[in-house]
Design a protein around this nucleic acid. Structure first.
Lengths: 185, 185
DNA sequence: CAAGAAATGTTATAGACTAACATTACGTGC
DNA sequence: GCACGTAATGTTAGTCTATAACATTTCTTG
């Protein structure tokens, strides 16, 4: 009722894609297979996802982070603001509802083509956050560098989290951000 | 004698690809066009470059950096060691012989698919540098995070350098590394 | 239940890449 | 300089991602 047909088809495609990618690997599963598993046509798949990879590259973090970074005091240096904003953003996420995210990130972590495609996703997040910093007076290039560095650290943390079942998300991300924050002179 | 046939064909393909990418854009030029311009077959192109993008993704920096990072004192924190090693590595490059590199980076900077593919190149560099840090006692995850952050900053600097003809390479890279090292804006 | 809109299907096409096999060009010893 | 082995290139055929134009079905709402 609350979910339209469109939403249901989309999530069904996403789930089938994730299942197949985990079972056979990303490269070894074709869009036709995914579509068939979801009961639709190849064409329909591409109406929902621009590329095969985007079926697992939907990032739930992106919207949250920019806001948290913006909430940090304006006086802080861009790098610190980005680091600390991200830390608080991820602290608020419950580990529970992240299980499928973990599966998705795991597939990405194991697939070169997906790791590559993921940076395009990151660029959008990056631009949003950097824009926020610039609006508060930061120099554009410095802001861009700071944000990209922090996102690189976050990405490394996500891949670590997805592949080591023993570590929690906040643990991995926290450790990664520590490297950036403490490594300063 | 100085250059085998293989080497000549390879560089001819690379030059033709760069020319065509600059003139028509990466997406709008087909491998068939590149091959024809270089006087060979599509098939031959793929014998030299695994993908269309690799024709312009040959990175001359990768070999140099790992060594320079390794040369930094072992006591430094991973992030600082990576930052300072990279700074000294690029200081030794002459701005003169980097003109085609600048053209290549420019094409990459303007093309999403190439920016994405470039990270796979970066991963190899990253692994080499991180390996060096780990061999000197750094914790693996911290080393990986530090190196990836520094490479993200370097990449941002390279894109800036390629697109702003007024700025020098050392200037761009130096400014980017300053952000990581001092956090200043 | 009709009528418009949203979702899906059909067909056709371009282009990146792969594989198996045939052919030409190269360089090295004699 | 010539034969011979090998490296380089060509040929052909195919798979798969992605796009476009057009037809058809399925929802939804008055």
């Amino acid at each position: 009722m609350t979910s339209s047909k469109r939403e249901r088809t989309r999530s069904r495609l996403g789930e089938c894609a994730l299942d197949l990618f985990e079972e056979h690997g990303f490269e070894a599963t074709s869009v036709a297979q995914i579509a068939r598993a979801a009961g639709v046509t190849e064409m329909t798949f591409f109406r929902y996802f621009g590329t095969k990879g985007q079926a697992v590259l939907t990032d739930p973090f992106d919207p949250v982070i920019a806001e948290a970074v913006g909430a940090r005091p304006i006086g802080e240096a861009p790098l610190l603001r980005a680091v600390r904003g991200m830390r608080s953003a991820l602290g608020g996420l419950s580990e529970a509802d992240l299980s499928t995210t973990r599966r998705r990130v795991g597939v990405v972590a194991r697939t070169p083509a997906l790791r590559a495609e993921a940076v395009l996703q990151n660029e959008e997040t990056s631009a949003a956050i950097a824009g926020r910093l610039v609006a508060d007076g930061a120099e554009p290039f410095a802001a861009a560098v700071a944000v990209q560095a922090v996102l690189a650290a976050l990405t490394a943390a996500l891949y670590e989290w997805a592949e080591d079942p023993a570590r929690s998300l906040t643990e991995c991300v926290g450790a990664a951000l520590d490297v950036l924050e403490e490594g300063r002179a």
